[in-house]
Design a protein around this nucleic acid. Structure first.
Lengths: 189, 189
DNA sequence: AATTACCTACCTATTGATAGGTAGTTATTT
DNA sequence: AAATAACTACCTATCAATAGGTAGGTAATT
């Protein structure tokens, strides 16, 4: 069975939002991309606000799963953090796309309350995961010079998202790598 | 003499762009804010593209001046980097505003070529300044554990911009401070 | 006489959203 | 088994609001 329309719409909207931001894509864009009429999108998502909530929720779930899978596939903290960095690097799509959370944050004033709540929940999930990784990295010595895990987690997330932004600013993935060189150096994979 | 209209327009546009992104403000918004008619804006800036170029150029100059002033007012590298961090913290406006370069980067596809060039120039200026600061911090020992200055500069910029983004995502300045705690710890001010 | 800085009045294209209709499928009743 | 009812997934046509931009005029300054 091919992808159902609802999923196709979410896929198209996610790609558009991550490439152009919340105010940078329209129902007309999605309609053309998916191959149905603009008005028909409202059958699946009554408003753009509802669409963005669904988008953010799915993104949250996807990343929570990805984190869980990473934790399962790698047995040292250094390898896990490295895998998350790789995940974010792939998400860049060569400097053309950002983390959905980042591109939504810029248009914060255009977002509905549930989306804002969902963004906070997403960030807390990631910070929590990173915090656990740093705690573990201190124990298993697979991350060098670990300070307070909570501070490390907040800094790591800011660094990764900032590195994505650097790459996006000039559409050049190598800027992501340059920005993350020092963090990667600390990791034993 | 009160501020001339052109400057008022730039001020209003800069605040709007930093709070809502490039696609998040319109000539109608500016007109209302500044107190002239929408069509009159075209007298000062023929197109939105021209306005955004002027915006980015002025921003570049402002920050270059700010960096120069910081270098003049502080005599250790640690104090200088700390001052830049403070500058970016103030620019946050309590988590409601971002660095213009950051909010423009998200809407990269909506921007004209000259703006993209200007963004690159702006980033190179800042990276250069930071690089010099780290080199100096290694010499005067006012920044702890300095690795390769170029890598440190790229990481510091990503971290600062990422920290801004964290604060913007939840409209909470303390997230900026949490993200930057480890960097600040390294600085002797 | 030009130039500057605004104005009114308008234009076209696009935005998200609505109303109302039509096939085709599924479930319920007779 | 046939008829009815409801639902799903789309459609066309249209809406008011807003987008950036243009034409042409006016009043003041240089």
């Amino acid at each position: 069975m091919s992808t159902d329309t609802r999923t196709s719409l979410l896929n198209s909207a996610e790609a558009a939002a991550r490439a152009r931001g919340f105010d940078g894509f329209s129902y007309a864009d999605l309609a053309e991309d998916v191959g149905i009429r603009k008005a028909s999108i409202h059958h699946h998502f009554p408003t753009k606000a509802a669409l963005s909530v669904a988008l953010m929720q799915r993104y949250h779930e996807t990343l929570a799963s990805a984190c869980a899978e990473i934790a399962q596939q790698h047995d040292t903290a250094g390898a896990r953090l490295n895998a998350l960095v790789e995940f974010y690097r792939d998400a860049l799509k060569g400097g053309k796309s950002l983390c959905l959370c980042v591109s939504f944050s810029i248009s914060r004033e255009s977002l509905s309350a549930p989306v804002i709540t969902e963004i906070a929940a997403f960030r807390e999930m990631l910070i929590g995961w990173l915090s656990a990784v740093f705690t573990e990295g201190e124990t298993d010595k697979s991350i060098a010079d670990v300070q307070d895990p909570a501070a490390e987690a907040a800094a790591a997330l800011a660094l990764i998202e900032g590195a994505q932004l650097a790459a996006r600013a000039q559409e050049d993935v190598t800027l992501f790598d340059t920005s993350l060189a020092l963090l990667r150096q600390r990791l034993q994979t």
